[in-house]
C-alpha cells in the first residue's frame, strides 16, 4: 500500500506500539495484560509497518527471522520449566530468586524470575509465529501480484 501518511505515521507509531507491548507484558502479572496480549500488540505493530512500508521493510525491522523468534520464545518457556526443576521443584514451578523472606515472615524484593521468563517466551512465540504467517501470506500475495 503506497500511502505517505501511513508510512510517516507508522515510523512514529511502530516504536510506541512496541514499547506499549512490552509494558503490557510486564504489567500483566498485576493488571490486565501479559505475554499473549503483549505479543499480539507487537504483531499489530509489525503488521502496521508491513502495510505501510512493505513486508521487506518489516522483516528488516525485525532483524531476526520470525520463526526463529517464535522458536526462541518456546525455548524460553521450556527453560522456565526446567528452571523450576533445577530449583528443586517440579517442571514449571515458579522461582523468584530476587525475593527474600523478612524476619516477620513476609516476602520482600522484586518478584521477577522463572514466571516472567515463561511469559516472555509466550510473548516471543506469539510475536514470531503470527508475524511469520503474515509475512508468508504477504509474500504469497505479492509474489504472484501485479502490484
Amino acid at each position: 500500500m503506497n500511502s505517505t501518511i501511513l508510512r510517516t505515521g507508522s515510523r512514529v507509531l511502530l516504536p510506541l506500539f512496541l514499547i506499549a507491548s512490552v509494558l503490557i507484558l510486564l504489567r500483566g502479572h498485576n493488571e490486565p495484560g501479559g505475554g499473549f496480549i503483549g505479543g499480539l500488540m507487537a504483531v499489530i505493530a509489525v503488521a502496521l509497518h508491513a502495510i505501510a512500508a512493505g513486508p521487506e521493510a518489516a522483516r528488516a525491522a525485525l532483524r531476526v527471522e520470525p520463526l526463529t523468534i517464535a522458536g526462541i520464545g518456546l525455548l524460553c518457556a521450556v527453560a522456565a520449566g526446567f528452571w523450576g526443576i533445577a530449583a528443586g521443584g517440579d517442571f514449571l514451578t515458579g522461582v523468584w530468586p530476587l525475593l527474600t523472606t523478612t524476619p516477620e515472615g513476609d516476602k520482600a524484593g522484586l518478584p521477577v524470575g522463572s514466571v516472567l521468563l515463561f511469559d516472555t517466551g509466550v510473548y516471543l512465540t506469539v510475536l514470531g509465529a503470527v508475524s511469520a504467517i503474515l509475512f508468508a501470506l504477504e509474500d504469497a500475495v505479492y509474489a504472484e501480484g501485479d502490484d
Binding site: 502479572h29 493488571e31 490486565p32 501479559g34 525475593l99 518478584p111
Partner: peptide, 9 residues
C-alpha cells in the same frame, strides 16, 4: 505467585 491479575497468574 506474587501476582494480583488472577487470569494471568
Amino acid at each position: 505467585a506474587f501476582g494480583r491479575n488472577v487470569v494471568n497468574v
